[in-house]
Design a binder for these strands. Structure first.
Length: 656
DNA sequence: TCCAATACTTAGGACTACAGCA
DNA sequence: TGCTGTAGTCCTAAGTATTGGA
């Protein structure tokens, strides 16, 4: 098995002629045999028993049994035999690794890393870049100047014109000023940052215009930092760290109408940092002359570094990359949980439908909310502190004002019109015909309430999740999103694809299936700024290709006529080559048209989020294997790394 | 039971390198 | 070879869920 992997990785290396970086990464991964073999080990097991709900547990038992049996056999057999069996014993080493499935929330036994990379220190502006107040030049103190540059860098953004942004910024900026500056600078509108802004624009231009050598030098330096700080050792695995760079200071820009937009996000110093690593590891050193806030050894959490951010007072963490064992296993468990829901979802649906009739209001509310979460893939909707964040809601926190009930609409009965801002202030707008009973319940919930009152006043996420926990062990509201997303992908793929299609058509179908999920989960994006233009360009290309095809057909026709008269080998060959040309152009045209359709349909829909977080990757892997689509067409390199476990374990007959 | 703290997943947008084209 | 559009990557905000203590 290990050899098979070796070959696979070698192949990859040949294909990726590019960049030392990639090769280095592959190599470092490969040099650690456990990274490769362990993933394979659980892959094998899944294949053997995919129906088991507690695979890790089973694996441990089976492995234990196997090892025990082997040991007994070895004892009974003569000593000479031992040497003979030894290689096969080695085969179990990776399994034994997996045996270390920790209990009681223990996440690791050994953790060593180099700590975070801090943001580069502030570089004062050159003296010719000036700041003006009320038309007069004014030299700022370094502290005030730094914060001023944050604002100057954002000048082109619309939000620097917003009142809230300006007010928050000015308030925090003043805190960084000397008392003299504070007394002079009293009106943001009189501040002129334009020279600073120009300076930064010029810098970014200069960066773009750098020579190849200069760019390479920067790249090399980044690579060096990555090699030094970008990896850690967790239980004998060398693992990639996700965000080993500390967030640089700047102005906070929340999403949507955020009351804290424009506030100063302060610089993080070593004194703010908590390091988490194992006692027996080489502890990371703070920069010379500084100290960490704390070094702790908590192996019940997965983070390596944490600090408290000053805007919301929340904790930020440095954690491992999605390709790591600890994240991969969790991801796998997430999909296994969703598959368990698949087995009992009918029962749960019957239950909540029954609950629509309950005598108790709280149960009716719970049942209707769950229906929305299931049918519409809404998020749970935790309570939020008012005034601290943008006003967004999920299912449990819906307010009366977010729904409009229509007895009849567009020829359909009992239509509920949803209109609210969800996570990241993305608008959810949907008109949904519901069952009469749900409709009547909603009327009841909305009776005698103000628009700003909670729709489900007897419900919150913790009540809902407690109930779900009783219906199925480990079930929470978000599992429904995962389940419905994955099952939709599987159904859509079955419906849309046929083995007769060519690869581009299959990929179009895959994207359509992916799109169905993205629509269900309301994953939107702002249309790319260049969308219209690029669409036009594509259309021009299509038109040109059509003309080219017409020409080629004409040429074919005349070649055929020519061949009919001449009846020699040469003209026959000419016909053949013209035929091929027509075929080739037809294929090219079709490819372009597919591309256009795909792009148009994708204008406002983001596929990435569902692909990365909601779709069981084994469905996609199996689909690729079954239909002969190379996995590289569906997953890019990073995605393949994240889903290595799935690529390894799913066969073509995998079913979610 | 409630609330705050904590840990972890999910999310869209900005930036950038590079593929593909003329 | 130079240009441009976009895929891939980075960044960090904003959710969900659990826990532990009052």
């Amino acid at each position: 098995d290990s050899h098979k992997h070796k070959d696979k990785y070698k192949d990859k290396e040949h294909k990726h002629k590019d960049h030392k970086k990639d090769k280095e990464r592959e190599k470092s991964k490969y040099s650690n045999r456990y990274d490769v073999t362990v993933i394979h080990a659980y892959g094998r097991h899944i294949g053997a028993d995919s129906s088991s709900s507690d695979l890790f547990g089973d694996m441990v038992q089976i492995t234990n049994a196997l090892v025990l049996a082997l040991c007994t056999a070895v004892l009974v057999a003569c000593v000479g035999m031992l040497v003979y069996i030894l290689p096969s014993l080695c085969f179990f080493i990776p399994f034994r690794w997996e045996e270390e499935r920790y209990t009681d929330g223990v996440k690791w036994k050994f953790l060593e890393h180099k700590g975070p990379v801090f943001a580069p220190p502030y570089e004062p502006l050159p003296s010719n870049v000036k700041f003006y107040y009320d038309g007069k030049y004014m030299k700022l103190s370094p502290g005030a100047e730094e914060v001023a540059t944050f604002f100057a860098k954002m000048l082109d953004h619309e939000y620097t014109t917003k009142d809230v942004f300006r007010k928050n910024f000015f308030k925090d900026w003043r805190k960084e000023m000397t008392s003299e500056e504070k007394s002079k600078l009293t009106d943001l509108n009189k501040c002129d940052f334009s020279e600073m802004s120009e300076y930064f624009k010029a810098q970014s231009e200069a960066r773009k215009a750098m020579t190849k050598e200069e760019k390479l030098k920067i790249k090399m330096e980044n690579e060096r930092i990555l090699q030094e700080y970008g990896f850690c050792v967790m239980d004998n695995h060398k693992e990639r760290i996700a965000n080993f760079r500390i967030e640089p200071p700047g102005l906070f820009r929340g999403r949507g109408d955020h009351p804290k937009m424009g506030m100063l996000k302060r610089r993080i110093r070593p004194e703010d940092i908590i390091i988490n690593c194992s006692k027996d590891s080489k502890h990371p050193k703070p920069p010379p002359g500084t100290k960490w806030k704390e070094v702790r050894h908590d192996n019940k959490v997965t983070w390596l570094v944490s600090w408290t951010e000053n805007i919301q007072g929340s904790i930020k963490y440095i954690m491992l990359n999605p390709s790591s064992r600890i994240k991969g296993e969790k991801d796998w468990q997430k999909y296994e949980m969703a598959r368990r829901l698949k087995k009992c979802v009918d029962r749960i649906r019957a239950q909540y439908r029954e609950d629509w009739k309950s005598k108790e209001m709280r149960i009716r509310q719970r049942a209707v909310a769950l229906y929305f979460i299931d049918k519409l893939a809404l998020r749970a909707g935790n309570e939020k502190e008012e005034g601290e964040t943008a006003d967004t809601v999920g299912c449990c926190s819906l307010r009366v004002e977010h729904l409009t009930l229509h007895q009849e609409m567009d020829g359909q009965e009992y239509v509920v019109e949803f209109d609210f801002l969800g996570k990241d202030s993305i608008r959810y707008y949907n008109k949904v015909p519901v069952e009469k009973r749900v409709f009547k319940n909603l009327q009841l919930f909305m009776e005698d309430k103000e628009p700003e009152d909670d729709l489900f006043d007897r419900l919150n996420t913790s009540i809902l999740n407690k109930h779900l926990q009783e219906l199925m062990d480990g079930l929470t509201a978000k599992v429904f999103r995962t389940y419905n997303a994955s099952i939709t992908l599987q159904q859509q793929l079955n419906e849309l694809t046929t083995s007769e299609d060519n690869v581009p058509a299959k990929i179009l179908s895959y994207n359509r299936a992916n799109r169905a999920v993205a629509i269900l989960c309301n994953h939107q994006r702002a249309p790319p700024k260049t969308f219209e233009k690029s669409m036009q360009n594509l259309q021009t290309k299509i038109d040109a290709k059509k003309e080219q095809l017409a020409d080629a057909k004409r040429e074919l026709k005349s070649a055929k006529a020519d061949a009919k008269v001449r009846r020699d080998e040469k003209s026959k060959k000419a016909v053949e080559s013209k035929k091929k040309a027509v075929q080739r152009i037809e294929e090219q045209l079709m490819k372009l048209e597919v591309q256009a359709t795909d792009r148009e349909e994708n204008k406002q829909i983001a596929l990435g989020t569902s692909k990365l977080n909601y779709l069981d990757p084994r469905i996609s892997v199996a689909w690729c294997k079954k239909l002969g689509v190379p996995i590289e067409k569906i997953y890019n390199k990073t995605q393949r790394e994240k889903f290595a476990w799935a690529i390894d374990m799913a066969e073509k007959d995998y079913e979610f």
